[in-house]
């Protein structure tokens, strides 16, 4: 519906003005920065990925073609990092969306306190990744003194021994993903809430008169109406999931045994711990290609081109 109206608008709008120099005056400052610090590095990264790139003074970089890419596919740590990155995305994206939807539905339904709750849920979103990552290291302390262990042992009695969260790969991934969900729920919830408030009450009332229950109304009215919003949030969250870096870097550093490594932590490590700039650049491009393909597929298949 929206896209249709947008397209119609664009066609009926008066033709845009053609001027000779004025546009460039407006374009130039931003475009210059964008070109030098965004587009040029983008090309440069690709060029570097084709070299055994040397950065230290007095050394020569060797052209190696696609060897860095081939190396990645033979590198078991790369596959581990890819698997972890995918796992993080597969868990945190649905986790955030489902919880955010529940929060948004609840907030939409309650008569008062919306702003207060929205503020509280949004707090983690505005807090720096560095701070919350360190905070979670503290909460997920391996001993009984860690808040999470203490809660699980002595309040809800689910475990009898403290879990060494950040020492073991599995629990460490759980801690990292918990942080990802906790920090992100508020963002999706605020967007969902705004979208929910845009659905007219009459639709729901009409459906209720027809005898539809809450579940049916959710799937027949809310979800279709929210579809563009849902796809938008999904696409952005998946991109965000593949870009996970700071929590892993600060919570486990990819350890133990690279088992919590993600693509970007591995890339950073290769580049700045071993000065393998060419390999790091190749890893970046592989990640970018993955993200591009997944986003493309999502948009192409999940979005219905035209609705009423």
């Amino acid at each position: 519906m929206r896209s249709l109206s947008l397209r119609a608008r664009a066609e009926s709008a008066p033709p845009k003005r053609r001027l000779f120099l004025t546009p460039y005056f407006f374009v130039l400052p931003a475009a210059l920065v964008f070109a030098v610090f965004m587009l040029y590095p983008l090309f440069e990264a690709f060029r570097m990925s084709l070299f055994d790139w040397k950065i230290t003074p007095g050394t020569t970089s060797l052209f190696v073609g696609f060897e860095n890419y081939a190396h990645a596919f033979r590198d078991e740590v790369f596959w581990m990092a890819l698997r972890n990155t995918a796992l993080y995305t597969l868990v945190t994206v649905p986790g955030q969306m489902i919880l955010a939807m529940l929060v948004a539905l609840a907030l939409d339904a309650v008569p008062r306190g919306k702003v207060l709750f929205r503020t509280l849920f949004y707090l983690p979103v505005v807090t720096s990744w560095v701070v919350v990552s360190l905070l979670f290291v503290y909460l997920f302390e391996s001993s009984e003194a860690g808040l999470v262990n203490y809660f699980l042992m002595h309040i809800v009695h689910i475990i009898s021994e403290p879990i060494p969260w950040l020492r073991e790969p599995g629990p460490a991934m759980v801690a990292i993903m918990t942080l990802g969900i906790w920090k992100g729920v508020g963002w999706s919830a605020v967007i969902f809430l705004a979208a929910l408030q845009g659905i007219s009450a009459e639709l729901h009332e009409a459906a209720m008169i027809d005898g539809a229950n809450g579940w049916q109304r959710f799937w027949r009215i809310t979800v279709p109406m929210l579809r563009p919003t849902l796809v938008f949030v999904l696409v952005l969250l998946v991109i965000g999931g593949f870009n996970v870096f700071i929590p892993v870097y600060l919570m486990t550093g990819g350890n133990p045994l690279h088992r919590t490594e993600t693509i970007l932590t591995y890339m950073y490590n290769q580049a700045f711990n071993f000065l393998e700039f060419g390999y790091g650049a190749a890893l970046s491009y592989i990640l970018a290609a993955i993200i591009f393909v997944i986003s493309f597929v999502q948009i192409k298949f999940l979005r219905q081109p035209v609705e009423v």
Partner: peptide, 21 residues
């Protein structure tokens, strides 16, 4: 409050246009 849809729709449309068109 429908505006968010329009924003979202706009972004998606543009991405689709970029991706497919």
């Amino acid at each position: 409050m429908k505006q968010i849809h329009i924003l979202v729709g706009g972004i998606l449309l543009s991405i689709v246009l970029m991706a497919c068109g």
